[in-house]
């Protein structure tokens, strides 16, 4: 009877292994990568120089409500700095607009030169800039953001890239090769090969439940996988 059970366990384990074997390799490899590298490094925290908070004198800046009224549909206002100049970023249905925070007069969006100097200031390291592009479409690696934006690529094996808002010049995101590999492997891990964000896809559901039966039959099989000699010992 035990022999038959062992045989059944072994057969099940084998056949399920045949089906999910490749994915089991992918899960362990991608999982190992994701846990082995510190998430702060993946996020690229080390690529950015932390900015000391800047102070404005309350008497110097205009009423934010005036800034909101100056933009059609203006709804929210935030104080930012563009270089050394305090500006109000006004959120509006047609996208954000920046105004001088002292006068609420319109401010031209940052030029390529300004973006270059902002990028060089924020980037932590001495790598040079390879390329600066104004993008009208959001690249896949920063999906979820809104265009237009500036992409600044830096030298280096890990291809650091900073993204800035084309209207406000704010740093939106940073990417590098370790992040790109992580993102790719995460897609493989959750078996979402398109957008890499839906953990509820049918493929993953089927494979993950099958993997559970693989580990359970494996555990069952362990009961028969160690020599019997040990069981006899107490009799002596």
């Amino acid at each position: 009877m035990a022999f038959r059970a062992a045989l059944t366990a072994r057969r099940l384990h084998r056949w399920i292994g045949l089906v999910v074997g490749v994915q089991a390799l992918v899960w362990t490899l991608s999982g190992l990568y994701m846990v082995a590298i510190d998430l702060d490094i993946i996020h690229g925290d080390h690529l950015i120089r932390t900015e000391a908070p800047r102070h404005a004198r309350l008497g110097d800046v205009a009423d934010p409500l005036r800034a909101a009224r100056a933009v059609p549909g203006g709804d929210g206002v935030r104080l930012l700095w563009l270089g050394d100049r305090p500006v109000y970023a006004v959120s509006a249905p047609a996208g954000p607009v920046i105004l001088d925070a002292r006068t609420t007069a319109p401010v031209a969006p940052p030029t390529e030169d300004e973006i270059r100097s902002i990028a060089a200031e924020r980037f932590n390291g001495d790598a040079g800039i390879v390329e600066v592009d104004l993008l009208q479409e959001v690249p896949f690696e920063i999906r979820g953001r809104t265009a237009p934006l500036w992409r600044v690529r830096f030298e280096g094996w890990n291809k650091p890239t900073l993204y800035f808002s084309a209207t406000t010049g704010e740093l939106l995101s940073r990417r590098h090769e370790l992040w790109r590999v992580f993102d790719f492997l995460f897609g493989l891990h959750i078996m979402d090969y398109g957008e890499r964000e839906n953990p509820n896809n049918m493929l993953l559901r089927v494979f993950s439940w099958a993997a559970l039966t693989l580990t359970l039959t494996g555990a069952w099989l362990l009961l028969y996988s160690f020599p019997r000699r040990r069981r006899r010992r107490p009799q002596a």
Binding site: P53, H55, L58, V61, V77, L79
Partner: peptide, 10 residues
């Protein structure tokens, strides 16, 4: 009227 770090309207 002193120093401020952030100002917002929301």
């Amino acid at each position: 009227g002193g120093d401020v770090v952030r100002v917002a309207l929301r």
